[in-house]
């Protein structure tokens, strides 16, 4: 880690610009609502084993399909599993999926986009045409396509999310790199004799990451939704793993008699995705201020 930091010129995360931005964020309404929601989600996921009162996978059949009570806050499902515990562990699954999936997309996208933007010329054109083709697919369809190729399972959901988000990040990164490339300070770097690689790592990358961060936050929420959708369709996480989308799928057969089976996962999905979207909006407001007349 030390070496990595030194290579990038010891850029500290808490530069005064960053500090000012954090202050502005604290004041932004969207962020103020969204961030706590996301925080709760993250905490649930991280602390799942500590919070969940019951085993999410093994249930007591004698207590199947019970409505919410003091023993089972969210009631039980058809196999007697405690829904609350499943929700909490589901948060963990969604957290892993979102984080891992987006990270893959970001890392791949940043590398692809920065190389494309930096080299420019026909290489850039060619690489971007490939991205255009990928972007032409409607989101969900691409995810379904990938999922059906690699098959079901948690790992594969992560891959699907990584693949289908990657083109967006590649394009965003490339755009940011193109803009930064024209700055005086990049030309000044050439003038003092910096190598091309050094320019990319020390000058271009650190200044191009904001749009990626904003987009990453927004897409995290969307990926949770996509993962849930895939699982709902049976293409993603398989039972008995508790995942909100999968839970809703299982609830389909018991719609009338045990609404607790789909109400809670849906609610949590909505709130979590909303939280991410609001947080992303807040970030966007602060990082891309619109010019007022």
């Amino acid at each position: 880690m030390q070496v990595f930091t030194r290579l990038l010129g010891e850029r500290a995360w808490l530069s005064p610009q960053t500090r000012l931005l954090l202050r502005k964020l604290k004041r932004n309404r969207s962020f103020r609502v969204g961030a706590p929601l996301v925080a709760v989600f993250v905490l649930l996921g991280l602390l799942a084993p500590l919070i969940a009162p019951y085993n999410p996978v093994k249930g007591e059949l004698s207590h199947a399909l019970e409505p919410p009570s003091t023993r089972h806050w969210f009631g039980t499902d058809q196999l007697g599993r405690d829904i609350f515990s499943r929700i909490v562990y589901g948060a963990r699954i969604s957290l892993i999926v979102a984080v891992a999936g987006i990270l893959i997309a970001i890392i791949a996208g940043v590398i692809y986009g920065s190389i494309s933007g930096f080299i420019g010329g026909w290489v850039d054109e060619a690489l971007m045409r490939i991205i255009d083709i990928l972007l032409a697919f409607p989101d969900i369809l691409l995810a379904i396509l990938v999922a059906s190729i690699v098959g079901p399972g948690l790992m594969n959901v992560i891959i699907a999310i990584g693949v289908y988000n990657f083109p967006q990040f590649a394009r965003i990164m490339r755009g940011a790199v193109l803009a930064v490339k024209e700055s005086d300070y990049v030309e000044a770097a050439r003038a003092i004799g910096e190598s091309r690689v050094s320019i990319l790592l020390r000058y271009i990358l650190p200044n191009s990451l904001y749009p990626v961060v904003v987009h990453g936050t927004l897409r995290s929420g969307a990926s949770i939704l996509t993962a849930a959708a895939l699982s709902f369709l049976g293409l993603g996480v398989q039972p008995p793993t508790p995942e909100w989308g999968a839970m809703i799928n299982e609830a389909m057969k018991y719609l009338d008699i045990a609404p607790q089976m789909w109400v809670f996962p849906s609610l949590f999905l909505i709130i979590t995705v909303l939280g991410f979207n609001l947080m992303g909006d807040g970030l966007n407001d602060v990082l891309n201020p619109r010019i007022k007349e």
Binding site: G9, A12, D184, Y185, A189, G193, S195, R202, Y203
Partner: peptide
């Protein structure tokens, strides 16, 4: 003309190091 993400020290150090 100065890299916004580099401290002054590093901005001046770069040519010396290169």
């Amino acid at each position: 003309s100065l890299n916004p993400r580099m401290r002054i020290r590093d901005i001046i150090a770069r040519p010396l190091l290169i």
